[in-house]
Design a protein around this nucleic acid. Structure first.
Lengths: 173, 173
DNA sequence: GCGATTAGCTAAGTTACTTAGCTATTGAAG
DNA sequence: CTTCAATAGCTAAGTAACTTAGCTAATCGC
């Protein structure tokens, strides 16, 4: 008897080539693979600096978000999509390593402000070229046009993903 | 004194808009966010079927890879980028749940062949519409042209990521 | 001024994996 | 043919990257 193929994973005609969802599945596969590569690159880079991948992520986020004053724990948590507890713990380790500074907020006595220490800033500067080299290698073949295109497409997909997640939040429960 | 901004994360001019890497960082952020959405969707879908996200991933991979005969543990492992030990363990649970079948390979006495059971095939059929709905919602706004474009760009990025990873494998030890 | 939120911390738990080490079998090279 | 390195799969133990729960203290909304 003839084998029945698995049902299609998508029905939208624009995403089916020759009636098959093969290309679509390959795309999803490649998207996940790319994400893993980005995490692996971050992790490698972080290891050279003596921190873990997630710590490096927090470190870079804090470098970005801390203005003159610093950034709150929740501020970092929201930006990174993790819980405050995780930021507390990992940022604490980085403070222990002398890469971050933590001071009490002058405007909210519950709050705390995270920022790079002098040592942290030096580390960041020294890491710059390595980060650039990785990103240039991975993304360097993109033209400005392709970059804009990709940017817009990915934004649409993120919006679509948000909708899909919202859907099944309302569907059941 | 004027604050020094963090060093750029990329130098390639095509990726800098107005001399800033802000758009580039936003892109990376969105790419990671999209990957998280895909995992979250898989996880939700899996939960409705009573399995975990990774188990569902293995299940779908086996549905794809098992031809007439089935697919080996390593075959699945390589496709999914995990170790054989993990496939052994999780597929074992799915066998226990009656969704997969495991038989000894007729050509290699070390090997086993994984395939869907009748119950597994029924589950897969029943999950089809839900999977399609999610993917259609998330990716449905793409035109065929955009889909092809995205596919090509992502392939290039994966290739770039491979190069970047290879680089730092050779650079240091 | 009082209840509901919010900030941050700590401790314990969970998930999705990996590594290490074993046995059985195979393929390939002499 | 033999042997020996590589491969398939399994089990048990370990680990990384988080989360949840529960607490205290401070602030916000009315």
């Amino acid at each position: 008897m003839p084998r029945r193929p698995p049902p299609l994973t998508v029905t939208c005609p624009a995403l089916l080539v020759g009636g098959s969802d093969g290309a679509f599945r390959a795309l999803i596969n490649n998207l996940m693979r790319m994400a893993e590569q980005l995490l692996a690159l971050r992790s490698r880079l972080a290891a050279e600096l003596g921190v873990t991948g997630p710590q490096f992520g927090l470190f870079l986020a804090i470098a970005q978000l801390a203005g003159e004053d610093g950034v709150s724990v929740v501020g970092v948590a929201r930006h990174q999509g993790v819980t405050g507890a995780f930021v507390t713990a990992e940022a604490g380790k980085l403070v222990g390593r002398g890469l971050l500074e933590k001071r009490d907020s002058p405007v909210d006595r519950r709050g705390v402000l995270l920022s790079l220490s002098a040592k942290g800033r030096r580390l960041l500067e020294s890491a710059g070229p390595a980060i650039q080299a990785r990103n240039d290698t991975m993304f360097g073949t993109l033209s400005a046009r392709e970059f804009r295109m990709l940017d817009r497409l990915v934004r649409r997909l993120v919006a679509g993903g948000e909708r899909a997640l919202a859907d099944l939040r309302t569907t059941r429960h």
